[in-house]
Simulated assay, not measured.
Amino acid sequence: MNTRSTSTFGHVALIVAHCAGMVDLVALPVWVGTLIQHYRLDPQQAGGLVTLFLIGAVLSSVFLASRFQRVKGRWVAAGGYAIAATCFGVLSQPLDVTTMAVLHAAGGLAAGAALSATHGTIARSANPHLKFAIVGVGLGVFAVLFLGTSPKAIAAAGGYMLFAIFGGVMLLAALVCAIGFPDPEREATDRQGAPVAAIPRAVWFGILGISAMALVQSMTFSFLERVGNDRGFSLNAITGVLVVLGFVNLLPAALAAFFEKRWSARSVLMVGPVLQALLAATIMMAPGFYAYAAAASVFAAVMIFTHTFAFGLMARLEPSGRAMAATPAMLMVGAAIGPVLGGTLVKTAGYGSLGLAALLIGSLAVLCMSRLPGHAPSSLAQEPA
């Protein structure tokens, strides 16, 4: 076993790589809202473009996950984010919708590969729950910065500014990964000469459960800004909600680290989808601003908290890192469907239909999570970092 711990700069590289690859979790409402307001696309078209980015991420993540142990994570991460930065840089120029679609798909392919290398490396750490919580706190800081500055910058400069910001984030991630991306801390089973075990059935159910939660997350979050705007809430009020959401997102990963040994992972995974669905329904159906603002402020935090427990548990159930290298796929296969499904529902049946859909999908997520154990078997548990 490789006993080296990740250096400080290695932790920074993982945090920056995680933030860049998970930009959709933070930026969906601004992304979709910008495409509708500044590019004059309807909700279905706007959701479809974001869906192409997410489908690209899913495909590259699925392709890379089974090969994770045979690739050099540093160069996959650096190269992937460099290509994504180029795609977003081109998107910041005036383009037709077809070209925008191609660039969204290409950017998703590149960013998904980079994020797979990042999550596979985290999963192979001595304490994947704690390390995923650390990068989750970093994502919360990024959310505060992005949501606090980007809406007004885009309103002042135009829609192109969104893609310029994305391009800058991806370029920074490429540079940091090229310099400091760490090697996995645990040796892979197949490098020790033994056959790699099949991924446990419980892990597959966990993957489906997280995918269902990601679907609710993206379907709701994509139209969080739009539903507030269409109800007559001011730009300042909606931006304020997004800023509060960003600050709230500083907490869930840290809390997940604190409660790692205190709460059963299975209990968290059973409650998380229920709470997420109820918040989604509140956002889409509440008539007043305060109910909307309260639910929206904590909505993303539920996903971050629940997913940290899921990541830690499943990384220990499947210690080779293959399943967790597919984290972008399990998140984005749901997230890819969400924007276009949400746009279709809004276009045909109004915002209330999103709340009803969230409740149905949340029930499926609970069913899947119920198949996971409360803790990994002791034979698979790793020593803390």
Rank of each mutant, 00 (worst) to 15 (best):
L313V: 03
Y290R: 13
L269P: 01
A105K: 09
T306S: 14
G355N: 04
A123M: 04
V302G: 00
F68V: 15
P43Q: 03
L64K: 02
P94C: 04
G193N: 00
A376P: 04
G33T: 04
A111G: 03
P287V: 05
E185V: 05
F9K: 15
H375A: 15
L255M: 13
L162G: 02
V144I: 07
G180I: 12
D230H: 12
S234E: 02
G112K: 05
L115R: 06
R4I: 11
L317Q: 07
T3F: 13
L275K: 09
A376L: 06
S234P: 08
A153M: 14
R371I: 09
G167Y: 06
T189P: 12
V244H: 00
D190W: 09
Q192W: 02
S267V: 12
V241Y: 07
G206F: 03
N127I: 09
Q382F: 13
D190C: 11
V243H: 10
V76A: 01
H307P: 08
T8D: 11
T34C: 03
D183P: 10
I122G: 02
R124T: 05
Q217E: 14
V241T: 11
P182L: 10
L372P: 00
L41I: 02
I179T: 14
A164C: 05
L35R: 03
T3R: 15
K72V: 15
A265N: 08
G79F: 00
P339F: 01
G168D: 06
S370E: 11
S218Y: 08
A198Q: 15
G321H: 06
A214V: 07
G148K: 02
A349E: 13
L242N: 03
L250S: 00
S116N: 10
P339H: 01
G138Y: 05
R40T: 15
T98P: 00
F233H: 12
G136W: 00
H375T: 15
A325K: 03
I122C: 01
A82D: 07
F146V: 04
S116I: 03
V176I: 14
S5E: 15
A295H: 01
L245Y: 13
S61A: 13
A57V: 08
I361G: 05
W75H: 12
G56D: 05
A156S: 13
V30G: 08
Q217N: 12
C177N: 11
L359S: 04
A277G: 01
L162P: 01
A117F: 04
P373L: 06
T51G: 12
S66N: 13
A376V: 04
G272C: 06
D24T: 08
T118V: 10
V216H: 08
Q93F: 12
I283L: 09
T34Q: 07
S60G: 01
L331P: 03
G73W: 00
T149V: 12
S320F: 03
S353M: 11
G80T: 09
M284Q: 01
F53G: 11
L224D: 08
E187M: 13
A198H: 13
A265L: 04
A13I: 02
K131P: 09
V58N: 03
A143H: 06
I83S: 09
A357R: 08
I83N: 09
V302I: 14
T239V: 10
T348L: 14
I134Y: 11
A212C: 13
I207F: 09
L359G: 01
G374W: 09
H104K: 11
A133Q: 00
L147T: 04
A113H: 02
G108A: 07
D24V: 10
A77Y: 02
G89Y: 09
H18Q: 14
A336W: 05
